[in-house]
Amino acid sequence: MLKELLTRQKSVIVDNWVRRILGSYPSDSLKFLTSQKDRFANPIGCTITSNAGAIFDELLGESDTGVAESLVTEIVRIRAVQDFSPSQAIRFVFDLKEAIQDVIGKDLRESGHCGELEDLDFRIDNLGLSAFDSYMSAREKVFQIRMNELKSRSLQAMVQNGGVGQDD
């Protein structure tokens, strides 16, 4: 029942989910993020839209292949350097639960199949945990890069100061 509903309503659920994720950006930018379909002109909107659909497909699959995690990571890496707090940056994974409830929640409750969501919720929660790992890894990378830049600048300064002819 659940899988059938999810498959049938996939595009509606994914649209709902994408709308929620893009809704975290300023409203004046929404039109661009949702309507520009060129992936090179709109990397944020296109990555989120295309990865959301692919993540959903992976979640419907029988086994965890790790693909969903890497798709989540691509979105997280973008949000990790934007104006979001950590919780805001990874909340999009959990938004999927609300999107699913929005679209098929009523059908599931009326048919008494709500319990079937437990397994999917568990997989989404795990994906949320992996998003947290990805976020931390992205932030560590930012600071590592910054540290490397500082080190190379210090080295440069030392070479300059150690050289002949520095006047101060």
Binding site: S29, L33, Q82
Partner: peptide
């Protein structure tokens, strides 16, 4: 020009 700036494209800040 609105959607041509790399800072807008990369940040979504209008």
């Amino acid at each position: 020009c609105a959607d041509k700036c790399h800072f807008f494209i990369g940040s979504g800040d209008p």
